[in-house]
Amino acid sequence: MAGLPDPMVPSPLRVQRVRRETYDTFTLELEPANGADGFSFAAGQFNMLYAFGVGEVPISISGDPTKPQTLVHTVRSVGAVTQAICKLKRGDVLGVRGPFGSHWPVEEAAGGDVVIVAGGIGLAPLRPVIYYLLSNREKYGRLALVYGARTLQDLLYNPELEKWRGHFDLAVEVTVDTAAASYRGNVGVVTTLIPRVQFDPLQTAVMVCGPEVMMRFTLRELEARGIGPENIFMSMERNMKCAVGFCGHCQFGPTFICKDGPVFRYDQIQAFFAKREV
């Protein structure tokens, strides 16, 4: 896919498999429609997905970076374009431009503990990190995944969550904002789980993705646990039309989310993150 003359022209990829994650969220497995090479990417990067004739949206890659032959995207159906994407069936074609943007610091985090904090669909851009960490388990200290969703019906990747829970060397904490009184699991916002996680504040990389308000409160909890802003990484979202720094839509203060992000070290955006309507 790389080496296209024009970064604005999507390549056709064919849908191989569609998996229903929740009532509104689907995972698509894509392969090049024209027999081209696999799709190399780094955990945290995104693609522009084009639903034929409808439009284009930025979507993070949710697959395994060590398996580039299949491109995986998890899409929540919330607007015209994502609705069209979620209706695609095996054999249909989707336009793809990318991969774009910065990535999670999985290599830089080696030697220390890693904590992943995800809210809702924010788990999708972090799943490649989990794949990477688990296949390079010996390089890391303690690993923890803290995941919150609105309800049990909103939890993504249920079969995998259960599998990851089975790992003795990966702490998995899951919570939902609301649940029936009979539910025995954690109920409450994701930040309530952070005090439970064990890590060494001086040697830990935290990777956070979710709604901005969730990230804001997560940062507060992390600060209370003694994690410095230089050890916190977060993935940001803004409107995007081009993904290559031309359209201007994704500006966040002096940064462009598409080319300087979407993954930022917290201290790179700290001055603007606490402000409103940036």
């Binding site: 004739g53 284009e56 031309f246 359209c247």
Partner: peptide, 8 residues
């Protein structure tokens, strides 16, 4: 320089 795109 800002632009938008329209798919038709």
């Amino acid at each position: 320089f800002c632009t938008t795109v329209e798919d038709v």
